[in-house]
Design a protein around this nucleic acid. Structure first.
Lengths: 253, 253
DNA sequence: TCAAAAGTGTTCGAAGTACACCCATGG
DNA sequence: CCATGGGTGTACTTCGAACACTTTTGA
């Protein structure tokens, strides 16, 4: 985020934001990548940003992902717009400023400084309509990188998310709900796995997402009947058992 | 639409619009309510509008429906956001003005008048992000009323829509697609029927929506298994055959 | 030769499809 | 009593779940 100029002058569409929910999968856990803001207090916020005047909203979502997390070229899906009239970040920002008064003159000057900061405060605390996007990434491939704005950026299990600012917890809930409901149609869950994977990997992934068990043979039949996977060579792990086949997504989404 | 003040001063969120696709059902045809603008030339445009600063986006969609069509208390569902950077109404507006030059001084002054119109032209031709909503209405119950802005407001079969401004034809296509894909989950199609209806009505509705035939007995079983309908008294039509039962939606959506 | 895990075939039950029959209604 | 259309029951097919068996791998 560029703080040299007031946000209101950077050519963004006003009062429109994009929030990204980044899903990853590791150790049979479904996780969300959540940055923690680099201020005193526990402020966890989804990677968010605004839309440039000359930018498609999909492109804005990808840019925000790239700028805030270093992640690019991922599966991305728009899922919901939250647009309550009462939806603004004033409560959050005021709390942040209150906890960081001693930083006035350094970090938080961008928020209160008369030259640019006052405008930014007005910009930030206005009512915002937010377009939600969810991303599905291979957690082993992407290297999430925090920016100056963040104290940390970490993966949290969907069942053990920190308390987040504004309605971000609800947004994640809605993202997860949409992901689950449309998975059968889209078959996009494999984007959470590595390039190649075994049928057992796929099964454990589905078991994690839906929190229920599947029979091994029936699951294999069901997945192969989708006709979206191609069978590759076997994977020899050195274990004392039959080597499983590797599979790969045919059409990358 | 209030044209006393420039749009830019009426307290709307900027560059955010709402487009409503209103589905109705009549004579075994699925239809969309489309107003034709009251200007020279064939300008068909979805009922659209903007969001007030103190208004939920859902409420805005309902208000727009009410103001532009007279329709209220309907089933409404958000379905998609279109946000291409190139998406603006300049081409459409310029064409409209060109075809209506002789009206300068009367109708179209709100668009070109220096006091307010010039601002409105700028407002209108900026890039807009549009939230799409679709409504399901009982075509026999609603009385669509055109406003001064409209020359007509009529129902068109989804297969025989007029050519519309901007990307409105695509928006309708997306609405229909979403409606079809989520019908099984939501079971919301009955909102297109009258308060009470026979199983045959329901079957013909489904056959129209999905453009395929269903077996009478199996369809009845499938629908009743949804557990969303209650059976009422029989409907005596005077026809020389068994009187069918009437049904009603249990939970109005 | 054995244990572990993968691949595949077989059976069973449920859900959906197709066919058939019966019933109410008014002429 | 008959034609029409609606309600319902029954057989069939198909799909998925449960079970069983075989194969591969390295110790």
């Amino acid at each position: 985020m560029n703080i040299s100029y007031p946000l209101s002058e950077q050519g963004y569409i006003q009062q429109l934001s994009i929030d990204c929910v980044i899903f990853g999968y590791q150790d049979q856990k479904l996780k969300v990548l959540v940055p923690k803001l680099n201020f005193k207090g526990s402020f966890f916020a989804l990677p968010s940003g605004f839309v440039y005047q000359d930018e498609d909203i999909d492109a804005a979502a990808r840019r925000i992902l790239r700028e805030r997390t270093g992640i690019k070229d991922v599966y991305l899906e728009q899922f919901y717009v939250t647009g309550k009239a009462s939806r603004n970040s004033k409560a959050f920002l005021d709390q942040l400023i209150e906890l960081n008064v001693e930083l006035i003159g350094s970090k938080s000057e961008d928020l209160t400084d008369e030259r640019s900061g006052a405008n930014d405060y007005v910009w930030f605390t206005r009512r915002f309509v937010s377009i939600g996007y969810y991303a599905l990434v291979d957690i082993s491939k992407v290297v999430a990188q925090k920016t100056d704005l963040d104290e940390s950026i970490e993966w949290y299990e969907v069942g053990h998310l920190p308390q987040m600012i504004m309605d971000h917890n609800e947004i994640i809930g809605k993202a997860l709900e949409t992901f689950r409901l449309t998975l059968d149609q889209k078959g996009n869950a494999f984007n959470l796995l590595t390039e190649t994977f075994t049928m057992k990997d796929a099964q454990q992934l589905y078991e994690t997402i839906y929190e229920k068990q599947y029979a091994r043979n029936n699951f294999q039949k069901k997945i192969l009947d989708l006709d979206v996977l191609e069978r590759l060579e076997k994977k020899f792990t050195g274990a004392a058992n039959k080597a499983p086949y590797l599979y790969r997504l045919l059409r990358k989404g």
